[in-house]
C-alpha cells in the first residue's frame, strides 16, 4: 500500500508540466526512497530523471516498491484540478490499477479526490554513469530560459563552450549568427541573480536547441539551473526541487562523424 502526503502539492504540478511535452507516458517508481521517474523522449535523444525523496513528504508509507504507469497528459489533467497551495495525498493499493489523488485546500474547507487509471508501460531503464564534469555552470533559471528562447529564433543548433572567460552560447541560421556569453557573477545583490562557473577544463558541445528549450519548462521549479558538461557526453541540465529532490534532463550531443 502507498500513502504519500505532500504539503507543497504545487511542486508536483510543476514537475509534471515540465516533462509532459517531452514524454507522453512514463512509469513512476515508488519505493521507500520516494518517487522516481526515468524516461526518454520518443526520439531517444534526451532522458529525464526525477527523484522526489520520501522525506519531502509529511507522511510517506510504501509497503512494497511499485511501478505506476501513467499517461502524463492525463496526470497533468488531474493535477490541474488541484489548487497551487493544496496539500496532495496519493494513495494506491499494491496490486491495484488505479491511483487516487486527494487535494485539500490549505484552509481545509475543500477536499476533492480523483482516481487515475494506471497502465502497463514497457520502459527501458538506462544506467547513468557517475561523471566528472569538465564544466559546471549554475545560472538563474530565467536567464537559461531566455537564452534558449532568444537563440531558437535564430537557429536550430547551439554550441555551448565553456572557457575561463565564461560560457558562450552560439547559434546561426538564415538570419545570421548569435552569441550570448554568461560570465561568473557571485557578487550580485540578490542570490537569485548569481552565476557560478566551475571550470576544470575547457569544453565545447553542440546540441539541438529545441530540447534545451523544452527543458526550460521546468523554470518555475527553481531559481537556478545547473548545466554540467564533459567532452562528447550528454549535458546534464538540473533543476533542484527545493531540498526535496531533483529534476534532471540529459541531452545527447551532436557529434561530427
Amino acid at each position: 500500500m502507498l500513502e504519500a502526503r505532500l504539503v507543497q502539492g504545487g511542486m508536483l504540478k510543476k514537475v509534471v508540466d515540465a516533462v509532459k511535452d517531452l514524454v507522453t507516458e512514463a512509469n513512476i517508481d515508488v519505493s521507500s526512497s520516494g518517487f522516481q521517474l526515468q524516461a526518454m523522449d520518443t526520439s531517444h535523444v534526451s532522458l529525464i530523471a526525477m527523484h522526489l525523496r520520501s522525506d519531502a513528504f509529511e507522511h510517506f508509507r510504501c509497503d512494497r516498491a511499485m511501478s505506476m504507469g501513467m499517461s502524463l497528459a492525463n496526470l497533468a489533467k488531474v493535477l490541474k484540478c488541484a489548487g497551487n497551495d493544496d496539500i496532495v495525498t496519493l494513495k494506491a493499493n499494491d496490486d491495484g490499477d488505479t491511483v487516487t489523488f486527494m487535494f485539500e485546500s490549505p484552509k481545509e474547507d475543500r477536499v476533492s479526490d480523483f482516481e487515475l487509471k494506471l497502465m502497463d508501460i514497457d520502459s527501458e531503464h538506462l544506467g547513468i554513469p557517475d561523471t566528472d564534469y569538465c564544466a559546471t555552470v549554475t545560472m538563474p533559471s530565467g536567464e537559461y530560459a531566455r537564452i534558449c528562447k532568444d537563440l531558437s529564433s535564430i537557429g536550430d543548433t547551439v554550441v555551448i563552450s565553456a572557457t575561463k572567460d565564461g560560457v558562450k552560447f552560439t547559434t546561426s541560421g538564415d538570419v545570421g549568427t548569435a552569441n550570448v556569453t554568461v560570465r561568473q557573477n557571485t557578487t550580485a545583490d540578490k542570490k537569485e541573480d548569481q552565476t557560478i562557473i566551475d571550470l576544470k577544463e575547457p569544453v565545447a558541445l553542440t546540441f539541438a536547441l529545441r530540447y534545451l528549450t523544452s527543458f526550460a519548462k521546468a523554470t518555475p521549479l527553481a531559481t537556478h539551473v545547473t548545466l554540467s558538461m564533459t567532452r562528447e557526453l550528454p549535458v546534464m541540465v538540473e533543476y533542484a526541487i527545493q531540498d526535496m529532490g531533483f529534476l534532471r534532463f540529459y541531452l545527447a550531443p551532436k557529434i561530427e562523424d
Binding site: H44, V45, H125, T206, L233, P234, Y250, A252, P253
Partner: peptide, 14 residues
C-alpha cells in the same frame, strides 16, 4: 554537419 546521437549511445540499458 554534426549528427545527432541517441542518448542510448551513452547510457546503457541496465
Amino acid at each position: 554537419k554534426p549528427g545527432q546521437r541517441s542518448i542510448t549511445a551513452f547510457f546503457g540499458t541496465s
